[in-house]
Every structure is written in structure tokens, then in C-alpha cells.
Amino acid sequence: MQINKTIEKEKEVIKVIGRLDSLTSPELEEELKGQLEEIKELEFDFSELEYISSAGLRILLSTLKEMNHKGGKMYLTGCNEMILEIFDVTGFSDILTINK
């Protein structure tokens, strides 16, 4: 997995390339830990993400909570069909903002 970050003022875009699973999720978690204080808008670019497992969902959930607490925005872009299906099945579609 590879993570590319771009920060522009209060907006951060995190592009995750490859797979977001048990093995790679800690890497993303490490990347996000304590890094979001200044951020008001957070975008996850999943256009090159192959798949996501529950370990990845756990991070999305905790990050969403953090952003919600401080009144920031968080949304996902470029999700493939299979990832969207996982969000549907797990009810994450209802709590995440997913931009087509």
C-alpha cells in the first residue's frame, strides 16, 4: 500500500493506493494520528484503492468521529464498485459522505 498526502491550507487529501487491510491499516492509522488538528476538510481519494477490509473501515469510522467532533468535513472519492458494495453491506454508506 502507498499513501500520498497533499495538504492545502485547511484541506487535506489522502490518496490510498493498493489494499487497505489488516496488514496495511496500521500504516494509515499512524499517518493520521494527531495530524488532523488543523484540518477542516479531509478527502480520501480511493480511485486507486483495490479493496478495503473491516480494519480499514475501523479507521474510517474513528477518523469520521474525530472530524465530526470538531465540526470538520470528511468525504470519500473515487471508490470502485466493490468498495461501494462493502460500504453498503456494512451500513457505512449511511454514515459516510461518498462523492461519485
Binding site: 477490509s53 475501523r58 456494512t90 451500513g91 454514515i95
Partner: peptide
């Protein structure tokens, strides 16, 4: 169906497997 605040991730993995 819970909202984000009330949600946890326990059991989500196995649930996902069952569903897919």
C-alpha cells in the same frame, strides 16, 4: 443502522464475510 457516534467495529469483519 446506528449513527456514526454509536457505531463500533466489533464483529464487522465476520459480518462482511457472511454478506459477501
Amino acid at each position: 443502522n446506528l449513527n456514526a457516534e454509536e457505531r463500533g467495529v466489533g464483529g464487522l469483519g465476520v459480518y462482511l464475510v457472511k454478506k459477501t
